[in-house]
């Protein structure tokens, strides 16, 4: 990803009317809300959104209020991609039969990590295999926040959640985060990318690219949750920057399976000395507090090791090592 490809300025983005409206009931400092606002700013024309059950679905559609200035459908937790299939198929055939306008309509399916990594994974895999033309947007806040911070397969190693508490014998979540974007690439998708809202131009560009693909596209967006991460709401966006700077969440895109680091991560590959230690990112987050106790030193080291290992693997995929 290069910023040269970017055609809009902050002013143009600011001027574009919101499709995700204020008055939603997300917590203070909720980055998924920022993500949705920015994603909707990136739309290129008529767009239908379908959303899985989850925080963003709930906060934006508490009857009689809606925060959606675009057509929007929610059916269930595991169904975002299946919904997108039905919407896309309906648009296609009704257009063919001349029952609706011939104008192109983009379809975006939105889900959190629970609705993507876990319960919605089968529907996502199926819809992608069938090749429906839609963008799947994952806002990853790394746990089931809507139900009260339970671990998902997107929760990182070591994190304390209400179903992986940091106890005296088990120090938080033992398993590692599922490499979902890689799994999506294994579906032979034309466009898969990861993004972080701190690098908002990059995020918006990737949304636009995903929409432009004729077929399924997958975008994994890192989305800090101060409530679930037990962190300072003011620092929510900062954590989305630190996750990139520590290579905990590198940002990249893969067009037809060809991995390419996006600028902020590319920079770290060129200047490895700028890569920050993971502790810079972990500290200040209540979910990782136990990792800084002397007895858990090994756990902290392990997180650094796994981060380094995955970063190296990624560099290899990008032909940078």
């Amino acid at each position: 990803m290069t910023t040269q490809e970017w055609k809009f300025t902050a002013k143009e983005i600011a001027n574009k009317p919101d499709l995700f409206l204020p008055g939603h009931r997300a917590c203070a400092g909720c980055v998924p809300a920022t993500v949705l606002k920015l994603v909707m700013k990136a739309t290129r024309g008529p767009t239908i959104v379908t959303e899985a059950t989850g925080c963003m679905e709930v906060v934006s559609s508490i009857y009689p209020y809606t925060s959606w200035a675009t057509p929007w459908l929610h059916t269930a937790f595991e169904t975002a991609a299946a919904n997108a299939s039905g919407i896309e198929a309906a648009l296609k055939i009704m257009k063919k039969k001349g029952r609706i306008s011939q104008e192109h309509v983009d379809v975006i399916a939105i889900a959190g990590d629970g609705g993507t990594f876990d319960i919605g994974f089968q529907a996502l895999s199926g819809a992608v295999e069938r090749g429906h033309d839609f963008l799947f947007l994952l806002y990853d806040n790394e746990a089931y926040m809507n139900t009260g911070i339970q671990r998902s397969s997107g929760t990182p190693h070591g994190a304390a959640t209400t179903t992986s508490p940091a106890g005296s014998s088990v120090p938080g979540k033992l398993e590692y985060k599922k490499p979902l974007a890689d799994i999506m690439i294994a579906h032979n998708m034309e466009y898969v990318a990861t993004a972080s809202p701190y690098y908002w131009r990059d995020l918006i560009t990737k949304v636009r690219k995903g929409l432009e693909v004729e077929g399924p596209a997958f975008l994994h967006v890192f989305a800090p949750c101060p409530r679930g991460w037990r962190s300072n709401p003011a620092k929510s966006i900062e954590y989305s920057k630190l996750a990139v700077e520590t290579c905990v969440f590198p940002i990249w895109e893969a067009v037809n399976g060809n991995y390419k680091l996006s600028s902020p991560s590319k920079l770290l590959s060129l200047a490895p000395q700028k890569k920050k230690p993971v502790s810079d990112y972990l500290k200040g987050q209540g979910r990782f507090r136990h990792m800084f106790k002397p007895e858990n030193k090994a756990l902290l080291d392990e997180v650094q090791n796994i981060t380094d290992k995955r970063w190296k693997q990624l560099l290899k995929k990008c032909n940078l090592s």
Binding site: L73, A82, N83, S85, G86, A89, A90, Q122, G126
Partner: peptide, 18 residues
């Protein structure tokens, strides 16, 4: 679809689209 669950979800969504 890859399951009946998705078959019904897709049917609902298609119908909701008109």
């Amino acid at each position: 679809t890859e399951s009946e669950h998705s078959a019904m979800a897709a049917s609902i969504a298609a119908s909701a689209t008109g």
